[in-house]
Design a protein around this nucleic acid. Structure first.
Lengths: 222, 222
DNA sequence: AAGTGGTCTAGACCACCTT
DNA sequence: AGGTGGTCTAGACCACTTA
């Protein structure tokens, strides 16, 4: 395993590799993470791998069963709904707060993120689209300086990424997405917290409905 | 170590013991959790203790520094503020949703929790007061069936417990607390989500201001 | 009863701090 | 350089599954 990144210990590197491998779908939901396989893949022995897995269990990415080790967390419809409810609660609140106190620099980074997102939507790379969508929403939370909230929502984004990438977005939704982001951005620029909050609430509802629809129709054909 | 509880492995038992020892102030913020000491205290070797510590790092209770092991997370004023902001975002949202759909049974458990809290306030057991306060707020989230939100807020409650217990509440606050809870409960009973949301927002603001004041005055004398 | 794979112990190794 | 304490390896042990 390379020394890539700034992490100094094996368990930190292994943790970041496994988290990334879960986010990119290398290990699908429910996949059993066996020590022997992980030892081969990452070239270290059991202890640093167990350290990494336990930390990821604390973060909610994997689940341990006593004497049965770890598997990747299953993302069912109910969990998906819970995550979107939390996003709505947190993002509607924070965007309202933010509208009053956002700086020109922060506004500029939001505009740039929106531009990047628009450009990505022309292509069909679902992973990139998801990440730039996440970036836009992440910047709103980052601007409020609430690192704890940013960490929680960031973990949620990472957890649902594989599902989002796998099922994609409907064509209409893909068209609507940057418009909704622009509307939110404009409301923030106009210092209209109430509107921004209202818009982001609708935006998250639509995102959830679209995802739920795509998941459902995918299930019914398979 | 006893087989107390339903946990089947040593790392699970150790994890629960350490989490509880952090919540009750046995290990204060900043305390370095040395393996040799923990091995003696819990009667097991390094591996299950490391497993437990890594999981607690994932949950946010402790922090690892590379090659320096684990210490209990420091709760500074900024983190406290972040946690209360998240509580406001989540609880104002969920109580609004809940007002429409709460069942008589859930209402009853809220009433009972309030009664227990009122009785506890007569005594001066800060730990119990905190736990029953947490119970009331926890029941609101539990009633929404969002286990992920309940887990997040529950962790936050556990993290700030030692500080809350150490600095206590002002006499006025202690008087006000059950009245505010009653007002929130009444608004929920009246199916008035907007009022309940508004009341819980003020309630959390007052709780934060009181805590911040107590911490500040304690700092200025010490 | 054998096989698989997770959990735990003992001890080596190594990074960092102190003298 | 020596000491402290965290990290990692090898292997024993043990729970659970399958035959």
């Amino acid at each position: 395993m390379s020394n890539y990144g700034l992490n100094h210990t094996n368990y930190e590197r292994v943790r970041d590799f496994i988290r990334s491998d879960i986010a990119t779908g290398v290990y699908p939901p429910g996949h059993r993470l066996k020590l022997s396989e992980l030892e081969k893949r990452y070239g270290v022995s059991a202890a640093p791998i167990r350290d990494a897995l336990q930390q990821l269990q604390g973060e909610g990415f994997i689940v341990f069963l006593p004497n049965r080790g770890a598997s990747v967390r299953q993302i069912d419809r109910d969990f998906l709904w819970q995550v979107y409810e939390i996003r709505k609660a947190v993002e509607t609140y924070f965007v309202r707060e933010l509208a009053d106190r956002i700086t020109p620099k922060e506004l500029d980074s939001l505009r740039k993120a929106l531009t990047r997102h628009e450009r990505a939507l022309a292509k069909t790379n679902e992973g990139l689209i998801h990440d730039l969508d996440a970036e836009f929403h992440g910047l709103i939370i980052t601007a409020t300086k609430n690192t704890e909230a940013a960490a929680i929502l960031g973990r949620h984004y990472t957890m649902i990424r594989p599902m989002r990438v796998r099922f994609g977005r409907s064509a209409e939704r893909r068209q609507q997405l940057p418009r909704e982001h622009l509307a939110i951005l404009s409301a923030i620029e106009a210092r209209d917290g109430a509107s921004a909050s209202q818009l982001i609430s609708q935006h998250i509802d639509l995102a959830f409905e679209d995802l739920a629809k795509m998941v459902l129709s995918a299930n019914s054909i398979s």
